[in-house]
Simulated scan of single mutants.
Amino acid sequence: MTEALHPNHGGEPGLDELTRELALDPDRRSPHEVAGALETMVLHPDYPCLGARSVFNRDRATVVALGEMATEGATALLYDALCAFGRDTDQGAGFASLVAVFPDTVVDSETAFESLLWRQLEQLHEADQQPWSPHVSDDPANPHFAFSVAGTAYFVVGLHPAASRIARRTPLPTLVFNLHQQFEDLRASERFERMRDTIRRRDTALQGDVNPMVADHGAGSEARQYSGREVPTDWTAPVSFDEENP
Rank of each mutant, 00 (worst) to 15 (best):
P143V: 01
H180K: 03
A74I: 06
T2P: 06
Q91V: 14
S189Q: 11
T40H: 09
L179G: 02
S97Q: 00
A162S: 15
P238R: 09
W235C: 04
R29C: 05
T174S: 07
F102E: 04
E68R: 13
V42Y: 00
H44T: 09
S240P: 02
P140C: 12
A4I: 07
M213R: 10
A146F: 06
V64A: 05
V99A: 02
G51Q: 09
A215C: 15
A163F: 07
L43N: 10
T89P: 05
E122F: 11
N57M: 12
A76V: 13
P134K: 11
G36S: 11
G228H: 07
S30C: 08
V214Q: 09
L117N: 01
F155C: 02
A100D: 04
G158V: 02
T62V: 12
E193Y: 06
A215H: 13
S189H: 08
D203T: 11
G151N: 04
A4S: 10
P161N: 07
A237F: 04
G94S: 04
A52G: 12
P161Q: 05
T2Q: 13
S133V: 06
D128A: 10
D242H: 13
G218E: 03
F155K: 02
P212K: 07
A219N: 10
A188H: 11
W235M: 03
T75S: 06
R196V: 08
G220I: 07
D234V: 10
P173L: 05
D197H: 10
R53K: 15
P31A: 08
L98K: 01
